[in-house]
Amino acid sequence: MAQQHLDPTDPTAAGPVTGDALARYLRSQATEFLRALRLHRESGGGGGAPGRAQPRPGDNGAEGSTGAALALRQSARRISGSLHTYRPLLDPDWSEGIRPELAWLSGTLALEHAYEARLQRLLLALHRLSGASVFPAQAVGTTAATAAAVGTAGPGVPPATTERGNLTVGAAKAGALLERQLTLARTRAHSTALQALGSSRFHAVADKLAVLASDVPLTPTAPATDLRPLAAAAEERLTDAVTALPLVTAGHPYNAEALIHGLSPDPAPHPQDAPWHQVRLLLRLHRYAREVLSLHGDDTPLQVRAQSAGQALNRHRDASEAAAAAAQAARTPRIAPATAYALGVLHADQRHEVEAARFAFQQAWQKQTVKTS
């Protein structure tokens, strides 16, 4: 497969894109962070009661807090990513001091939503696989919004009649077990996020970003330095990481080696997943680097072409983590055989979703390579 080498320059831009563009981008993201922080405080800062899968309909305070937390996380990620890509243009002590703090903040704020989305994904998959008329775990607190979404879920490919009967028997208990485990994890993540947002550590980060909104600590040479070589280096790291992926294997609809390893009792993370997660991170850094350049011109075509590849990698991450959650639930001591069977089928289903996402990424990336080669 031919490597992708996108032109890091923008043909619509006149002259170099210098550190001044980086300063404008960082100031705008810091301003967005402060705006989201104000909204979070005005909405009560709760993000929904602990243990509740989603805000209640009409609970504008909770919805506003959840949206504000998302905006905080997005701004923190963009600032952190830009500091990573363009670090030669920034004061090293300041940059290296705040980057780990931004990573801590965005990671902490992401956990609650991740557990909620994982639970919904697994319960919907259980319903699809079992063909049950009643949503698994619906009787033990599944939200109305999630239950309504079941009506739009595809039927999938059901197992044989006998196997479906066995799966239906265990699906409700498997769903209840997953809901208990992931709701508890979400509750803990919610409490951790609230503690983080009230901590002195967070206030120190917010104070630094308040200063960043008006004063970006660039190096003396940054205003005259072109950003494009640094953006091109970020793209090259992404291209190299994609080249190292087993895209030939991803071009097949079934990866037996991955499924066999995934069904083993080893609780370690799947060894094939890590490189794909790394590519997802590098693609995000590449996108943020291009956002800085886009302040100097129109970068929309590239973003549109890369969007499908990014969406495939997001699905890959979600399915991989959902499969791990199903496997972890299956290791619960003294669960009924039917429950363990349902969780095993669920795990295999999510590993197949992983392979489908890899195939989708391969198709998107090859299409993007052809268009830009």
Rank of each mutant, 00 (worst) to 15 (best):
Q350K: 07
T143H: 12
A147F: 08
R331M: 14
R38L: 11
N60Q: 04
H296K: 07
T85M: 00
A145E: 15
A231C: 07
T168I: 05
S320I: 04
H347R: 14
A189T: 10
L177G: 05
G44M: 00
P267L: 02
V205S: 12
L34N: 08
D298G: 01
L281N: 13
Q195C: 02
A357G: 12
A213T: 12
L218A: 03
E236A: 11
N60L: 10
T192F: 00
L167D: 02
Q3R: 11
L102H: 13
G170N: 00
V17D: 05
P92Y: 00
D299C: 01
R331S: 15
L346A: 06
L122P: 03
G58L: 06
R305D: 15
K173E: 15
L218T: 08
K371E: 08
P217H: 09
Q363S: 14
G64Q: 06
H270Y: 01
A289F: 00
A256C: 12
A171D: 01
G58E: 08
A213G: 12
L90R: 01
L90F: 03
G156E: 07
L102K: 11
L293V: 09
L212A: 06
A69H: 07
L6F: 13
V211I: 14
L178R: 07
V17P: 10
E116M: 04
S106G: 04
A2C: 08
L313D: 01
R78I: 01
H352G: 10
Q74H: 11
N166P: 00
L178W: 07
E116L: 05
P92N: 02
G51E: 13
L302E: 10
L129E: 12
A319T: 11
G310Y: 03
E42Q: 04
K367V: 10
S130M: 01
A103G: 12
H190I: 03
L313P: 01
T143Y: 12
H203N: 13
W365E: 04
H277N: 10
R280T: 09
P55V: 08
V150L: 14
Q350N: 12
A204Y: 14
G15S: 09
A139G: 10
R24S: 13
A329D: 13
L122R: 04
Q303K: 05
S191R: 02
G46L: 14
L129Y: 06
A360T: 15
Q363V: 15
A172F: 11
A21C: 07
T339N: 05
P267K: 05
N166W: 03
R52I: 14
T152P: 15
V354Y: 02
A326S: 02
R41S: 05
G170H: 01
R35S: 12
P55W: 06
H252I: 11
K173V: 08
E355C: 11
A2K: 14
H5K: 05
H347Q: 15
L302C: 07
R52G: 13
F359M: 15
L194C: 02
T85W: 01
Q120K: 06
W104C: 12
R334Q: 10
P269K: 06
R27Q: 13
P337E: 11
A174C: 02
D215G: 06
W94M: 06
P57V: 01
Q366R: 14
P271H: 02
